[in-house]
Design a protein around this nucleic acid. Structure first.
Lengths: 212, 212, 212, 212
DNA sequence: GCTTAATCGAGACGGTACGTCTAGTCTTCGC
DNA sequence: GCGAAGACTAGACGTACCGTCTCGATTAAGC
């Protein structure tokens, strides 16, 4: 996740990058965000809290948002499971349940909202955020959709990309716009909407047909 | 939309607020956002461009985002039609088509993304943005949903609030996250997903009835 | 002392100047100077305290220093006596005693120092302050010196202008530079220095001789 | 004269203070005072002219007056000689002649008047100005008076502190109040007044000799 | 009594500088 | 050569007053 210096051969002269500093900086960034909010987070503050110099931070991260993104990736077990639950419905349900649970963590939600905000305002960070974080999440859902397609239980009519937009759109809208809790009921409603006719009572299996 | 002084009896002593200044400030804010982006927009810049004093801006708007929100509300014919098209499907389709068309305007999209970003970072502005702008849009869709409910052609199973979250969630996700164009195809897919062909057996045309 | 509108024929139509406002403004200026110091004195503060509009102050006085100068002239019985005490020594002594007593009033001293300061910084006010206030004081001493000259008991050797410079110089230096109290002993020493026992023959006090 | 950081052991980490910046700031302050006057002098102007950031100025000087005081001390050979001329009269005469010559320099006079004004208005600066500048000048004259006392040719009757008040009082009064030139004649008159009987009628010419 | 003119208070206006804050860079040291 | 400490230029922040202006309400004098 560190945006710089990921060459596989770190055979360079000079002192090595201090892993202690890196962790102290990431920890300081997370703590400060929790304490003063993203707006109050500054590179100077991170440097002071972590005991690092500003130069060290600027050397390794292009912006405070990148520090936070790195912290998020390092700390959080951010990646929800995509293991095969046997059916598209089950897979999707598991994915949404896990994603919503993650989004219900206020610390994580706060950071995610801040990063999405920064992505709007700072186009360079936006590229990195979309390419690394957002695309990762889409890819996770993509695995499920591919599997469903292979399995043949993906309802026709909606392209996978649209499903992805609807899923993440609804999730992010709750985070960013309504600040309503990401409750399980919404997850269920999304699943039923996307897996087809939430079908009255009977015949849950035959529901996705356009015409019988 | 002006955040101060909307009492119906403005019988106060002293010089009246200058409408010229107000318009010049709103215009300058819009122009500068287009020219240098939201990150490059400053109160000082708006003051310089508009010929107003910084004091005047701070007197009437709490932040640059509020200026932009006011400019948006003043300028844009931002409000999509909610006239009765005869059916829920037609109403929703018209609403989405008009909303997407608006979002395809790059100027408007840029400002919307910036305001949503600011709403994350500045909680006070967030409250105002949610209460005035976002809620307005939800209410517009609410009119359609209420009418559908009264008419009886709202598909059962999804609460109106969830439909609203899905519609605006998908729209905003495209704006904020994928930067993909808000094409008509997505609107159509949303309509068909939400009006649903889970339509029991026959009669594709009469499908929105609760009971035949 | 009011710097405007002292034409002898005030036969004009329209509302007359409000003496109430004038007094309220002068009082507010004096009070505020005592409370927050000259640096903290502002036209806005005077207006707020006095209940007058800023326009009213600007209409009649060019600066806050002029308000204070007017207040000083209106309030203080600022003018020390120059009545004939019978001899130059007695006249000078009485003048100095009265002047020093005035300067020992901390309120008056504070205002005088502030006005002298403003006179350095604001040349226009400097002209007015020198022409009206400082020259008045010099003229008062001039009466005594003229009388002495006419009487014949002015010691030769020092031109009256130089005596004036020494007297007021010492007084102002104590106010501005050393902030030492203007004690009676200094007045006495000034008198004896300026009336001089160069007094050739008579020599009432023989103390100042280099060699007897 | 630098108000901060005169510890003898500057063994601190970090970048050293830039002497280039310091000199550029002092020069800019002097030039701007000459060009636009003390009232027109601003920290922003000094920063712009000198190429320094405002932060740098605020880091090292508490006010624009302190910058000017530092500039005066750095630039001017401000300190008049107090070398032993053989007699009190000669010493005092030399001191006054040199002091008056300095005060005849319009640049220096302008700055001195401004600093004395600021000392009235800004009490904190007043303390510094009195303690560093004014007291230095009094001390210089004190050397002469001490020497005279030791030598035995100080006229009795006037305490040294009073002599000091009269000398500097007259000097400053000319600068601040009358704006009359500090001419040599006034210096002579002061000397003769303070050294005692300017010798009655006879032999006015021979009085200032050291000893015949 | 009506008109006319100057006053009054209130308060918005375009400005300027303030002193603070943070950004991002540069320099100097110790390890 | 890395990393801390900290000084550097740069520039926006939000505030405080400035001095000017518009506003509606008063208050007289002259017609």
């Amino acid at each position: 996740m560190t945006p710089v210096n990921d060459q596989p051969a770190p055979e360079r002269p000079g002192r090595k990058r201090s892993e202690d500093s890196r962790m102290a900086i990431l920890a300081a960034a997370s703590e400060l965000t929790a304490e003063v909010g993203y707006a109050g987070l500054t590179i100077e503050g991170i440097a002071a809290r972590s005991g690092a110099g500003k130069t060290t931070i600027y050397r390794w991260w292009p912006s405070k948002a990148d520090v936070l993104l790195d912290a998020l990736a390092t700390k959080a077990d951010l990646y929800v499971p995509v293991s095969d639950e046997g059916s598209y419905t089950a897979d999707l349900s598991a994915f949404l349940t896990a994603s919503f649970a993650l989004g219900r963590n206020p610390q994580v939600a706060e950071v995610l909202c801040a990063l999405m905000a920064e992505a709007q305002i700072n186009p360079e960070f936006g590229k990195r955020f979309r390419a690394s974080f957002l695309q990762n999440r889409r890819d996770a859902l993509g695995v499920i959709l591919d599997r469903a397609q292979a399995r043949g239980d993906l309802p026709p009519g909606l392209p996978p990309a649209t499903i992805t937009d609807i899923v993440f759109g609804t999730l992010w809208y709750r985070l960013l716009a309504t600040r309503q809790p990401l409750d399980q009921q919404l997850a269920n409603e999304l699943v039923s909407t996307l897996t087809g006719p939430r079908s009255d009572s009977a015949a849950p299996a035959s529901r996705r047909r356009k015409q019988p």
